[in-house]
Nucleic acid binder design. Structure first.
Lengths: 161, 161
DNA sequence: GTGATTCTGAGAACGATTCTCATTTTCCGG
DNA sequence: CCGGAAAATGAGAATCGTTCTCAGAATCAC
């Protein structure tokens, strides 16, 4: 915290600023949850996060994680995603562009991608039908490279998602 | 049922055939539910269907609707969709091509569309990343034509979805 | 510090869905 | 048409993710 000036705002600073604006308070739990969220790569469920947070403090409750993730989502640090498995998953959002997902139906891997050509066509489709497009979601399901290799030798379905 | 031969199989026939294969039995409730499902256009929730079915027989239980829709989904008559509102919605699947959805965030309308150019690009994206694509889902969210008109005069959000 | 305000934890409540199980139906021979 | 095995149903309990409630604890502006 000693270096000067024009660094981009850190997630912690963003959250603090947002909370200031809303009259919310900084708490140990919120910090723990933010840290856990930033530390874990990928698409985490509340359960995942709770486990992570409880490693640091076993007393943190699930309700607090839900509440805090809602907060992080509101202030733009997190983005909530619904894949078909019944739980909400969160991914980092700060400073990251929109993207879509490629999901492996066997190992559960989730990859992100972005394709401006598809986005353009989506906009065109919406326009052609009189819609004013505000957002979209696109998930592609299939077998990832390594699961294809495995599947060729030993067909089966080790994991659901 | 008196006309001869090569008509395509009706949904009722398909279901009966499927049930025969699986050793399942024809029941009044299953027929009621199938009829209700085929009668209602669009994307119905179990609640919608239950209401519809209970108009004909008030004693049908929700569990039976859930069970029957699972059956219809298995045999390919129905397709289950998850839009963000927490309930599963079913659409007719028999003999219909894959399509994606355009959803109005104001009035809840759901339109279907299909765009081979987008499908091609999805396949390309998957291939480029080593995935063997098996399916996808794409939902576009925005304001439909008539809600755009209304919104221009009286901004607000009458409905969630 | 003090006090007003916000947070938290624990468990209750919730909504969609699935399960359980006792009772009812279906349907296959005879 | 009848009997009985197998499957289906209804009602409510159970489950699962999530939200709510509320009493006690923590925060922060003064």
């Amino acid at each position: 915290m000693t270096r000067a000036s024009a660094q981009p705002e850190t997630p912690g600073q963003l959250l603090t600023r947002y909370m200031g604006l809303k009259g919310l308070k900084t708490t140990r739990q919120r910090n723990l949850i933010l840290d856990a969220f930033l530390e874990v790569e990928g698409h985490v469920s509340v359960d995942d996060l709770l486990a992570e947070v409880r490693a640091a403090d076993p007393h943190v409750s699930a309700a607090t994680v839900y509440r805090t993730m809602k907060l992080l989502t509101e202030c733009g640090l997190a983005r909530a995603q619904q894949f078909g498995d019944g739980q909400t998953r969160f991914e980092r959002a700060a400073g990251r562009d929109h993207h879509d997902h490629l999901l492996c139906t066997r190992c559960g891997a989730i990859e992100e991608f972005e394709d401006p050509r598809i986005e353009a066509l989506q906009a065109e489709v919406a326009r052609a039908r009189g819609y004013e497009l505000s957002s979209h979601r696109m998930d592609l399901y299939g077998l990832c490279r390594s699961c294809r290799r495995v599947e060729r030798k030993a067909p089966g379905a080790p994991r659901s998602l």
